[in-house]
Amino acid sequence: MNAIEVSGLTKSYGDVHAVRGVDLTIATGEIFALLGPNGAGKTTIVEILEGFRMRDAGQVRVLGFDPHDEGNAARQWRNRIGIVLQSTSDSGDLTVIETIEHFSGYYSNPRNVEEVINSVGLDEKAGSLIRNLSGGQRRRLDVALGIIGNPELLFLDEPTTGFDPEARRSFWALIEKLRGNGTTILLTTHYLDEAEALADRVGVINDGKIIEVSTPAELGGRSTAQALVSWRDGAEIKSLATDNPTSLVSKLTAQFNGEIPELTVTRPSLEDIYLTMIGITHE
């Protein structure tokens, strides 16, 4: 069964059509990244899936449940999902371990509190009041509260904003660990390297519509896009876009009789592809 099934989803705020007919299927165990500029409708879609917002039209099933439904079934459903919101803060008068321990009591089968603290790298801060944590440490606490219930499906809304590079790497390692447990993850992010490192598939959304869903390697025809070969020829830098970089390089090797000065072969990065996609749809 799929973890998330969405078809024909629409949502407007007054005259603003935030989501305009979105179809989306996310398989169980998949890590899916939703990319898009600010105001594209990412957060609206995710918040509808999380049960925070009402939709205007369309079908939505999350773990087989309609997030719009209320009552005891909704509690059972929330027991199976984890949510890391974009910005949360607290009065800060509790310690890290008190907060995580308290939240663990909400779920039927919570993960071990010490283990979760360790996996987000907050061991040394376990006894600190939340008010004394740095921004990045608070974010890690948010993630800890999202996974304490041992969710089958985890929503991560821009989880690593404000992380230093080292913290991002260790966060990525944590996500890989969750993937190993079979957790389905829906991630929104601004960082394309993050999507590339983590996601099985990415969906690019702009102006309330999904433009393309693909693997990071194949998005926007990236895998078949021409490679750019550049090298130094005397005083000038030459470059050539080609479908066959290997044969060009071997031709150049023969021409230079060995080492080609300042040789680079590049393919468009995910960011190049993404920016092109967003740019095109703006016209």
Binding site: E50, G51, F52, R75, Q76, R78, N79, I81, I83, L85, S87, T88, S89, D90, S91, F103, Y106, Y107, S108, L145, G149
Partner: peptide
């Protein structure tokens, strides 16, 4: 309303706590 501004209530809403 302060807890609501912090986002603390929204976080609670996302858990199975009724």
């Amino acid at each position: 309303p302060l807890e609501r501004d912090f986002g603390a209530l929204k976080r609670l809403r996302g858990t199975p706590m009724p």
